[in-house]
Design a protein around this nucleic acid. Sequence first.
DNA 1: AGCAAACCTTGATCCTGATCAAGTTCTCAA
DNA 2: TTGAGAACTTGATCAGGATCAAGGTTTGCT
Lengths: 242, 242
Amino acid sequence: MTQIDLSPKTCANCPIRPRAICSRCTADELMELDKIKFYKTYPAGASVVLMGDPMTFVASVVSGVATLSRSMIDGRMQMVGLLLPSDFIGRPGRDKASYDVTAVSELTLCHFHKKPFEKVTHATPHVQERLVEIALDELDAAREWMLLLGRKTAREKIASFLLICARRLGRKEGESLHLELPLTRDAMSDYLGLTIETVSRQMAALKRDGVLLLEGTRKVKIPDFSRLLDEAGDDSDGATLS
Amino acid sequence: MTQIDLSPKTCANCPIRPRAICSRCTADELMELDKIKFYKTYPAGASVVLMGDPMTFVASVVSGVATLSRSMIDGRMQMVGLLLPSDFIGRPGRDKASYDVTAVSELTLCHFHKKPFEKVTHATPHVQERLVEIALDELDAAREWMLLLGRKTAREKIASFLLICARRLGRKEGESLHLELPLTRDAMSDYLGLTIETVSRQMAALKRDGVLLLEGTRKVKIPDFSRLLDEAGDDSDGATLS
DNA sequence: AGCAAACCTTGATCCTGATCAAGTTCTCAA
DNA sequence: TTGAGAACTTGATCAGGATCAAGGTTTGCT
């Protein structure tokens, strides 16, 4: 039997393997998945799929950042998903994209042809369970996001966004938390249902008030995490960093 | 073997049976589900579960209307889900509610104890598939809703809400479409991220402009469906009623 | 029928975030 | 190194929807 590489890098390529349930896949199942996968790299700004396109694959993000978005006929758009490395793209059982997928930085995806992927997963209960779990995670995120879009002030929206980023991308450095924003101000405005000017102004306000420090435009330091939690106005007791 | 009742009424009680895939459940599976189910009726305004509560059941709506909502410490809240008869409540594999569930009218649920429900579904691929499908449907709805919350004007929000209601609850009567709103103005404002006053004013404006006719406060007639579609500003080609 | 409470409407005013309009700072390629 | 375009900031003004306030209507209970 061929040796299977279970190192983190490979692990991240299989949408089923992340979050430590890799162990539940048999070597045969992993080999089967490895046979039907292929990598593809998109330049920053590239469109991966457009709403309505036939979806012939599922994929997982190897590196880079992608966004999901929906738009109106007149061009107004709203980001509805943010995809970071190890995140899953795709709707098993659906054949059309119901939103646009765009690379916001150079993006490498590990694709799986959809038909054979579904064949592999079809009869594998723990994989189906994992797919339910992925969908429920996304649903929770979407609903948290709805609260943000519907009821939060501009300042709270920015703070909430920083919080979300900090949770996934933040690194503790002594007392304070260091992170590199994955989005431009423009993309942040699409995320938060604001204009770019408001994003810029509120970032400046939070900086002025000592909630954050900026190094250049994308590098952010959070001196006091609980202060940021307050600013975000969240109810969730997520006082912890993963 | 006991006779199984496959009439629509019973069918709607099982979260797996709706949408015409009942046929994929064997008689044994249906019997197993029937053993672990129980009905419960909640008065209008009752809280079904609160965020953070342990969730010991999944359920499906038999009659009435329920809402999912999230709130902030200071009381601001956003509705994040609207549940009508045949809709599914519950997060298989999760043990805590991540939002509040409230009965907005008298509500009857068909509950299934979660543990045995998961046992029944665990080894049944077509049921797992159905659960993925349910979760993806909710996700699509949530993302559509995010576009509404983030980018639509008050008038567009109202029109979009009427559209959603019309699709699920509307009845053709000659040329025009008749429907009874499932929510009060107050609940509509929570749905749409508006205040009750704005909802009231925009309903009045749409009435004044001939987009709708009101009979009392909840009965709505849409004389021209395509007009409503325009007002909603949607991109989706959903020009059809189910 | 009569009353209270919930629900809804309408008006006046205010304020947050959008829009319009320059300017400044990065980034990166030649 | 320099120049061009992208990304970002800042200021002035505007407007959509929130807020405050009052009154009207419906519903349900006794």
